[in-house]
Simulated assay, not measured.
Amino acid sequence: MQKSLLTFANTHFAIKAETVLEAAGIVVAPMPLPVKLGGNLCGICLRIPAAETVVAVERLEAAAAPPADVYQIVETAGGKEYVPWTS
């Protein structure tokens, strides 16, 4: 199953996002931010099924907890790649 990764500007947004998505019935897996993504982002990100990405982003924007960035997780022979998501 393909997955998407949601990153956040701060921990408050990440925790609020998890609550909003779980209430919407979206399976959420919190995880540490991959080192490859670094930057000025919160250290917590959320992994969700790729098929739920559009709905998840819409719900989070409506709840005032938008993701900073959204990535598709692509499995490769060398590990995982994080490809920026486009709606």
Results as ranks from 00 to 15, higher is better:
M1G: 15
M1D: 08
Q2S: 12
Q2K: 13
S4G: 15
L5D: 07
L6I: 03
L6V: 01
T7F: 06
T7P: 02
A9M: 06
A9H: 12
A9T: 11
N10H: 12
H12G: 09
F13I: 04
F13T: 08
K16Y: 00
K16P: 05
E18P: 00
E18I: 02
T19D: 15
T19C: 10
L21K: 05
E22Q: 12
A23I: 00
A23L: 05
A24I: 03
G25Q: 08
I26S: 05
I26E: 03
I26K: 06
V27Q: 13
V27N: 03
V27T: 14
V27C: 08
V28G: 00
A29Y: 00
A29M: 10
A29I: 06
A29C: 07
M31N: 04
L33N: 02
V35C: 00
K36P: 03
K36L: 14
L37T: 07
L37Q: 10
G38F: 01
G39P: 06
G39E: 06
G39L: 10
N40F: 10
N40C: 04
L41S: 10
L41V: 12
G43W: 05
I44T: 13
I44P: 04
C45P: 08
C45M: 07
C45R: 08
L46R: 05
R47F: 01
R47G: 03
R47C: 11
I48G: 12
P49V: 08
A50D: 13
E52C: 11
E52V: 04
T53R: 11
T53K: 05
V54Y: 07
V54F: 08
V54A: 13
A56H: 06
A56M: 11
V57E: 02
E58N: 03
E58H: 07
E58D: 15
R59H: 11
L60H: 09
L60E: 08
L60I: 06
E61D: 13
E61N: 15
A62W: 06
A62P: 07
A62G: 13
A63N: 04
A64Y: 10
A64V: 11
P66D: 08
P66W: 09
P67R: 02
P67S: 00
A68T: 13
A68E: 15
D69L: 14
D69A: 15
V70A: 11
Y71H: 06
Y71F: 15
I73E: 15
I73M: 14
T76V: 14
A77F: 11
G78M: 10
G78C: 05
K80R: 15
K80G: 01
K80A: 15
E81W: 03
E81H: 11
Y82R: 00
Y82D: 05
Y82V: 09
Y82S: 02
P84L: 09
T86M: 12
T86E: 14
S87V: 06
S87H: 09
